[in-house]
Amino acid sequence: MRFVHNFGAMIISALHSLGEATVFTLDTLRWIVRPPFRIRAVLEQMQEIGYNSIPIVAITALSTGAVLAIQSYIGFKRFGAESMVGTVVALSMTRELGPVLTGIVVAGRAGSAMAAELGTMKVTEQIDALFTLSANPVKYLIVPRIIAATLMLPILVILADMIGIAGGASIGVGVLDANPVIYMKKTFEFLQLNDIYSGLFKSMVFGLIIAAVSCFQGVNTDGGAEGVGKATTRAVVVSTIMILLTDYVLTSILF
């Protein structure tokens, strides 16, 4: 009972912050088009969110591609369709696992860092200090993060797609003894550009979600170091849930 109650409360609070985060995001988007543009801040965030996430994204994609190859081989062998392993890996990675896993990994790595950094700035009054210096924190801190995350997620996903497919291929060819030429042929035979585009489009939305949710949690932090910890956790939990929900909605409506 208690669990159900807690779960209900969690859902309600998640919906509540979802509403607030939406207003917050719209407000931020308004600022994106207003000069001056902080190119340098955007580049720094692109490095932080994108470049620095490459190792963890690569490892995740590699192991996912490899496991996918083994699992689909085991299943497909039962009805003699082992030759389709490459196809399954390619479709799963590009359409679904590349974007979603990259989104979740980046939420854990970069989203938490964003929430912690902005949360610390909030509780040490650095955000207030920006206001007193007539510098809008949205423009100064949040817009660069949103732009960077929205741009970098698709790039990370392209990387994840390639590494995942390569991971699947190395298992398929190296361990499961598939013919390399046939495996690669099967990989690309049924792959359409739309599979890749749809994944990239979704990942842009995920990037926006991660940055908006994490910045929102960060700037709404209160209660000292403990509050920063909570904001960081919430940033990861809320952005992960929103990525999964949005993924379902986008996939079923658009593609």
Binding site: M121, T124, E125, Q126, A129, T132, S134
Partner: peptide, 19 residues
């Protein structure tokens, strides 16, 4: 509000330097 704030300088209790 922004232009009003330009008239002000504020020292925060905890300094609030941008780290």
């Amino acid at each position: 509000l922004n232009s009003l704030r330009r008239k002000f300088g504020m020292l925060f209790q905890g300094a609030a330097l941008f780290d």
